[in-house]
Design a protein around this nucleic acid. Structure first.
Lengths: 134, 134
DNA sequence: CAGGATCCTTTACGATACTG
DNA sequence: CAGTATCGTAAAGGATCCTG
């Protein structure tokens, strides 16, 4: 049915460096945090409020990782008490754009996915149900 | 349709449906498996060989999830022993293209990221060191 | 060949308490 | 305010054995 349109080799092959970064950004909070920072520079606790549901530990951890990767910057001001502002870098911006593509895909296709899930679940309620010795 | 989109607000906000799918595809194997399937239809064990490092359990689990989401199809042939072929769907193709963007981003920017990491690590070896708390 | 069922280890993550 | 340190739980993931 659907023919093989000639594609490049798997962009995520295990040896490939893609994996290194992908494994790295594909956790629960990284993209969310990055995209929040893409909107405007913001302080730690403010950010914690924006990124709903994140714990202080995960935020701190995520920010450190992002900073290390050069995707965001951290700037501390010697006020009392101290103020720290996080901001996205140009490099980080480019990644956040890619992340936006994923979000866009989801927005455009979520209906299809949900429909497929329902279809699948319906079939696996009638099917395995009567076979089901448990 | 839905072009209430890529304006300002965070595309990954916790409430947003983006998260539902993103959390879902952002694990260690989903994208890799999908992209491998995007190249050509393929059988289970063959796939297991292609997706280097994946365990039988994770492959099985990942495939089931992808099928449920309507991103791939599973077709069993009554040969002896049984043959099962997995193939990507048109919907899955569109997602694998997005995934390819991530891979492309990595390829294009990995040097910058690695450089940033080195810079960061160097500073945090000299930095905290001479403050000598340790 | 294509998986399911189990066990076990490792990791992620949250909650809490404390510090400059 | 902006974190660090520690602990405990839950989930992810790998290894192994088993089956139609």
């Amino acid at each position: 049915m659907n023919d093989d349109w000639p594609r490049d080799p798997n962009p995520f092959s295990a040896a490939c460096p893609s994996r290194i970064i992908f494994d790295h950004i594909a956790d629960k909070w990284t993209m969310l945090t990055l995209c929040t920072l893409a909107m405007k520079p913001i302080r730690f606790n403010e950010l914690k409020r924006e990124v709903e549901g994140i714990s202080q530990k995960m935020l701190s951890q995520t920010l450190k990782k992002l900073e290390r990767d050069g995707l965001i910057t951290r700037q501390a001001f010697p006020t009392v008490p101290v103020t720290v502002e996080y901001a996205i870098t140009p490099l980080g911006q480019t990644l956040s754009c890619v992340a936006a593509n994923i979000a866009a895909w989801t927005t455009n296709h979520i209906a299809e996915v949900l429909a497929a899930q329902e279809r699948y679940d319906r079939q696996n309620l009638d099917g395995p149900a009567f076979q089901g010795i448990k």
